[in-house]
Design a protein around this nucleic acid. Structure first.
Lengths: 228, 228
DNA sequence: TGTACATCAGTGAACGCGCGTTCACTGATGTAC
DNA sequence: TGTACATCAGTGAACGCGCGTTCACTGATGTAC
């Protein structure tokens, strides 16, 4: 592979810088990202952005995918850093990593998990990066089931739910009992809820000790799941 | 009290109609509500809206408060319609009512529980209506505790969490054990997460049987809480 | 190594649209005497 | 009951701003011979 030409390198750097500036703008304006404002910040004329991104929506998509991957990296790294058999430690670490990332990047979190942007439809290439955090969480349950410390839960699933979960499990975690998958999804839903409540201001007048509260709640969820 | 003048009655009707039209616009544009578009739909000139609302934000606030109250009405009514001792039935009914309302009014749900609107700060009068659904849920736990069927949970709370929850409980549910309050908040967080995931498209390619899935998950949560 | 040509980044003007808010005004509805 | 005046709803024009996107263009960087 030949070394990239100077032009190609400069181009890649420009793309990175546009994304970085756009990320900063997200913080102030939410998803109402303005190409013109980004161009202004970069000291160029607004039409110049079109050399790098064919439209505003493409830039938004690039930001979304990068954000999903940043969050996914953080969660997976936190999980990986724990001893494999320490299921509860892994659960807490993964949850905390998600929260830390969200607190450090609130605008990007809102872009990913807030209200859908009117008129914007997320393309298919966001699906895989978007599923990394929940896969990490359910992976912890899978490990627990494989080594026998997490058992098939007692609760019965309605047929329809059982079937839907079976299909979901088939591709990702073959052999994982559906009821365990359901519990994993409950944990993921709860994690999202906890972070969103904190970030979107639902805790504003209560619960000043956010981190301790978060840890307690994720611990409760680990109890529900049955994590040893 | 004298009968309201014709003028006053017409005025009240206009205010209602403006809000109704604005609600319809929320569905298409999210929180980017446009006063001009509302005025157009009503067949009046944009400046005429200012006879009724001093600014766009005031109109938004009115819509938010009404939406909170509509949701609160729905949840409370569902709870009230159940036999008082049927704690689990009340839990399911309240959760379902919240979901039903959200599915019927997705734009308003997003306005309340989605990403914060950039540049808009919710005023204090939204706090009381906003807390009606969680109060209903925790009220179910309180009833269970009062009649002895819900016992003080075994888990220990960290000191900070205990203190924060004690303060919260003091005003609303004196005597309710802090750990139970924490579980109730977990349930409320989960309810919000379930609805948001469904509404914001996280379930788009999975779990086609949404209602059964929802009921199962709220049931799991009732298990965690210990509802008989 | 030098020259001719193609590629590409960035410019500046323009199109056509949107928005919230203010202001002086007309004309109708209500109120006080 | 009738008249004079005050209140109020709605108009239309304007201010000053924003936006995404297109297009013909200049001038620099790269490539082929």
């Amino acid at each position: 592979m030949p070394a990239p030409s100077i032009r190609a390198r400069v181009r890649a750097e420009m793309i990175d810088e546009i994304k970085a500036v756009a990320r900063r703008h997200l913080a102030g304006d939410g998803a109402n990202l303005s190409l013109r404002a980004v161009a202004r910040d970069m000291g160029m004329v607004s039409s110049a952005i079109y050399r790098y991104f064919p439209s505003r929506d493409e830039l938004l998509t690039a930001l979304i995918i990068e954000a999903y991957d940043a969050l996914g990296d953080a969660v997976e790294a936190a999980d990986t850093a724990c001893d494999r058999p320490d299921l509860r430690g892994r659960w807490h670490a993964a949850c905390r990593a998600a929260r830390d990332w969200a607190l450090a990047n609130p605008a990007e979190y809102a872009l990913l998990y807030g209200s859908p942007v009117p008129g914007y439809a997320a393309p298919d290439d966001t699906v895989a990066p978007a599923s990394r955090p929940p896969l990490t969480l359910v992976g912890i349950l899978r490990d627990g089931f494989v080594d026998g410390r997490l058992v098939r839960p007692a609760e019965q699933l309605p047929d329809e739910v059982h079937a839907d979960l079976a299909e979901l499990a088939a591709g990702l975690f073959p052999g994982l009992p559906e009821a365990l998958l359901a519990r994993g999804m409950a944990g993921w839903t709860q994690l999202f809820g906890l972070i969103s409540f904190e970030l979107f201001g639902r805790l504003n007048r209560t619960m000043p000790h956010r981190e301790a509260y978060f840890d307690h709640q994720t611990g409760l969820m680990a109890d529900l799941i049955g994590l040893p």
